[in-house]
Design a protein around this nucleic acid. Structure first.
Length: 135
DNA sequence: GCCTAAGTCAAGC
DNA sequence: GCTTGACTTAGGC
């Protein structure tokens, strides 16, 4: 297919990791939380590169959401359309990659707590997000 | 050149 | 859609 080197800056892979792109999408929203489909739309809208091979990168994106501790899942409320859950950025992710390379962080974001406290923390954190929402 | 984060494939829930 | 694991690729030191 296309020869490398002649690309029109459109379909080139952006110098961002999926983690970066996802964090950007979430942070662009005033509520700091988005459903999966909105994250997809955000990325596709800004980077034509991601308008192809959707099955591949969307699966990878989902993998990142689950694998990294820096994304927290917000259970949707009964009034929302029955798609997936909402995704938000963990509060402690403030300057995770927002410092230099958007490709790779110094260390993978992992809570320093024990596994037990981690589970509790993530649950209560999600609960806190819900209960502290103004509307 | 090594270490390990990030990306891919794919199965199972 | 979400989670997990095994494997490959590639950045940073």
């Amino acid at each position: 297919m296309p020869r490398p080197g002649r690309n029109t800056y459109s379909d080139q892979k952006p110098p961002y990791s999926y983690i970066s792109l996802t964090a950007m999408a979430i942070q662009s929203c005033p509520e700091k939380m988005l459903p999966l489909s909105e994250i997809y739309k955000f990325i596709m809208d800004r980077f034509p590169y991601y308008r192809e091979n959707t099955q591949r990168w969307q699966n990878s994106l989902r993998h990142n959401l689950s694998f990294n501790d820096c994304f927290i899942k917000i259970p949707r409320r009964p009034d929302q359309p029955g798609k997936g859950s909402f995704w938000a950025l963990h509060p402690s992710c403030g300057d995770m990659f927002e410092n230099g390379s958007f490709l790779r962080r110094r260390k993978r974001f992992k809570l320093l707590m024990s596994a037990e406290h981690l589970a509790q923390s993530k649950q209560s954190d999600a609960a806190h997000y819900l209960s502290s929402k103004p509307s």
